[in-house]
Amino acid sequence: MTTTAARFKTGIATALAISGAVALAGHAFAYLLRTSTAPEVLTEVASPDGAYKAVHSVYLGGAIASHCIDVVSVYRATDRVDGGDESSRVYTGSCHTNGPALRWISKDWLEVGFSMTGALENVAEVRLSKHAVEGKVSVTFAVDD
């Protein structure tokens, strides 16, 4: 084998090794940044008549860009709770030391209590919805400073 052919072969092997290492590092970095797709259900509170349930879930972020998101969703009692259905969400915000407080005022009226100062990290955004389950459940919010 000539010297030129040997250098060419070594160059190709080096280029392949480098591109493989870069691809592997990119996938590892993306994995560390991702948000958990499966929420952890912390609390389920049934409405007084048992027709609905309010569910407090938490989404946890990756190791490098760690974050925590509290989510409150409202479902019919017979619905499967998965937390991923954004149409069922009535509260979304940064995690709090005690999480949002859930209290049914009546069979179709839920109160969600939370504190803007009790967040574990800076609160950049809180999303609220006044109705759930196709408008059949009213939601009010009690906010502590």
Rank of each mutant, 00 (worst) to 15 (best):
M1R: 04
H96V: 09
T97K: 11
I12N: 07
S94F: 15
T97N: 14
S73T: 01
V74Y: 00
L32V: 07
I12E: 07
G93P: 06
C68G: 10
A38C: 05
D49C: 03
A101Y: 04
V22E: 12
K53D: 02
R7Q: 13
V126E: 00
R34M: 05
T92C: 15
A21Y: 07
D79P: 14
E40T: 09
A13P: 05
V139G: 13
V41R: 04
A30Y: 08
T92D: 02
I105M: 14
F29S: 13
W109Q: 08
C95D: 13
A28R: 12
T97Q: 15
F141Y: 15
T35P: 07
A63Y: 11
A124H: 11
V133N: 02
V123E: 08
K107C: 03
V41Q: 05
H67V: 02
S88P: 01
G99H: 11
T14Q: 04
A63P: 08
K136W: 04
P48I: 04
T78D: 15
D82Q: 11
F8M: 09
L42K: 02
I64R: 05
T10Q: 12
V123G: 11
A46N: 04
R34H: 06
T2F: 08
V72R: 01
V58G: 01
K9L: 11
V133I: 02
A23G: 04
D79N: 14
A23N: 01
N98M: 08
D144L: 04
T43Q: 15
A54S: 07
H67S: 12
M116P: 07
A46H: 10
E44G: 03
S66H: 15
A77N: 06
V133S: 03
S129C: 09
K136Y: 09
T92L: 13
G84V: 15
E134K: 01
L32S: 11
T140N: 04
M1Y: 03
V139W: 07
V133C: 01
G61R: 06
T92I: 07
T78K: 14
G118E: 02
A63E: 13
A13F: 10
A25I: 10
R127V: 00
R80V: 14
C68S: 13
V81I: 08
G84S: 15
F29P: 02
A28H: 09
V41T: 12
L16D: 06
S94R: 13
T4A: 14
V58K: 00
A25S: 09
F114L: 05
G84M: 15
V133F: 01
V81C: 05
E111F: 04
T3I: 06
A6V: 13
A25M: 12
W109M: 06
L120W: 06
D144K: 08
S88F: 03
I12G: 09
L128Y: 03
A28D: 09
E134T: 01
Y52P: 05
A54C: 03
